[in-house]
Every structure is written in C-alpha cells, then in structure tokens.
Nucleic acid binder design. Structure first.
Lengths: 136, 136
DNA sequence: CTCGAAAATGGAAATATTTTGCAAAAAATT
DNA sequence: AATTTTTTGCAAAATATTTCCATTTTCGAG
C-alpha cells in the first residue's frame, strides 16, 4: 500500500538529494522516534561522509513541511517520527534508553470528557517507563 | 498551615546556604514553573553575585531530593516547580497555554503489567491537552 | 547529453546551554 | 575563634545546535 509520502515521492525543499531521502527513510522505518544523533548514526551506515549539520538541516526541513513530527520526551530529549502514524504512545526502557511505539492506548478518558475544574479533554500523550525484554 | 518543606526546614544536601534557601523560596512562591535563567534573575534581585552554576547545581540537588519536580514543556523547555504533590498529570490549555496539575489518573494499566512485546511497565506520565474553563 | 545557475553538503567555526575545576568564602564542628 | 569540610563564583570545559563557506550536486535549458 502506497500513500502520498513514500520515499519515491518528491521531498520538500528545492532539491531532492540522497541525504534527504535517506534521513526520511530512516525515520519512517524506525520502530520508535529517533534523536538527531541516532538518525546520524544510521544515515552514516549508508553514507559515511554525511555531516551532523545535514541531519539537523534536513530534520528541520521535514518537520516544518509536516513530513515528520517532533516528540519531546519528559526528560527534554527531542525525537522525530513519521507524521502519518496513527494514535500511539511511547515506552522508554530505563536501562538501555531505547524508545519505541506502543499501539495499545491505556487511556481511560475519552476525548470530550470533562475533568474536575471544567477542563475539556481533547488530546493526550502517554510516556511509559519500564524494562524492555532485552534488558531483563 | 505548615508542612514538612517550609523554608524554615533544613534543605537537602550537606550544608544549608542562603543561595539554596532562596532558590527554593523563589520556586515555591512562583505562580508557575520556572526555567533556570528565570530563577537566576529572581535570585540575583536579592543576591546579585549569585552565579548561574549555583542555580544549576541547586536545582539539580532539589530535584534529585524530590523537593522540586521538572516539567518539560512541549517545546522542550525544562521548568521546575515545587513537588509536594502526589501522583498527578498535566493538562495544557491549547488556547492560553497554561499548564496545570491534574490529580485524577486516567491510566488503565497498573505498574508491573506486561505490554505486547514483553515490556514491563513501571512508571508513566500523561500530558492532556484541551480547553480550560476560562478559555471556553 | 552537456553546461551553467542555484541549492545542498561536509567540515569547521560560531553560538548557546549545561557541567566541571579550583581557589576563596561560608557553614558546621570543636 | 579555630579547624574542617562543603559550597560558591568565576572561568574553562564539555555538549548541543546553528551558521559559514568552499566544493559538490542537482536539475533545467539548450
């Protein structure tokens, strides 16, 4: 199944480059949101001369063009993931630090619910912490 | 009404200093969570020679001693607020941007639960977004 | 297909933020 | 008040991100 943003489509910006296509591909194929250094490591496995500045520039471009979205972790770390994912949450392993997507939503309140004090709920984000199978 | 962490009580760490007492007082008396530079500005109004390193060190000490807690804003900014609250979550108004504590926990999974993939849940943090009564 | 203009890249330098080293000052102990 | 130990202020170092610029790459015109 193809949608409007497969890697064969034009990337945002003036020129289509191998670095931009690869940055977007790495983010798309990740099991969870990635930091800029993590993207850099993966991109260099294919294009070893890629500089960190290119990752920063490309991530900013993809983000401002809505191809990817930023996820700020509660510890302040910024991670990026594809913008066309469905509703999901994040789990971070307290030992290895890896972050991955959790499709199951453990939220007991529905959108539109009224919280004590008269607050109307629209969206929510949940970050879970624990131990991944590899670290057990 | 006095609780265990009024400014007359001992502060965490080895020595009780004027700088530490003042940092904690500034955070306690703020109407909202503060950044390190904001705390620095306020502390220097009383103790002008206070260095930014002392604010970073003191905030880290107060935080690791659980006297204050960190709140990461959606843009990645880290702010600190007094921490004499129990388990709670955060609600941010999408119109005015105000962030406030929500005592009700809408989490349907208990600590120790196993998520699909073999991940063991320990803690969680929930940020809710919606509209506050004032903005309706 | 080749050329040339414009944009992107890599690497380094510049910025910005947070942490650390250390001599002097302050706090607790005697 | 003297001694010991911790903390502070300042500067330097470590980190993280952005900008600069010469070279390389993209891509459209011919």
């Amino acid at each position: 199944m193809m949608n409007a943003k497969t890697s064969t489509q034009a990337l945002p910006g003036q020129r289509q480059t191998k670095q931009r296509a690869l940055v977007y591909e790495v983010i798309r194929e990740s099991k969870g949101p990635l930091t800029v250094p993590e993207i850099h490591v993966q991109v260099r496995q294919t294009m070893p001369r890629t500089g960190i500045a290119t990752i920063y520039r490309t991530v900013k471009l993809l983000h401002s063009s809505k191809w990817i979205q930023a996820v700020t972790m509660p510890d302040g770390e910024t991670r990026y993931e594809s913008a066309d994912l469905g509703h999901h949450h994040h789990f971070q392993c307290k030992i290895c630090g890896e972050v991955l997507d959790i499709d199951h939503c453990p939220m007991s309140l529905a959108p539109g619910a009224e919280l004590p004090g008269g607050y109307i709920l629209h969206e929510h984000e949940i970050t879970m912490y624990g131990i991944c199978p590899r670290c057990r």
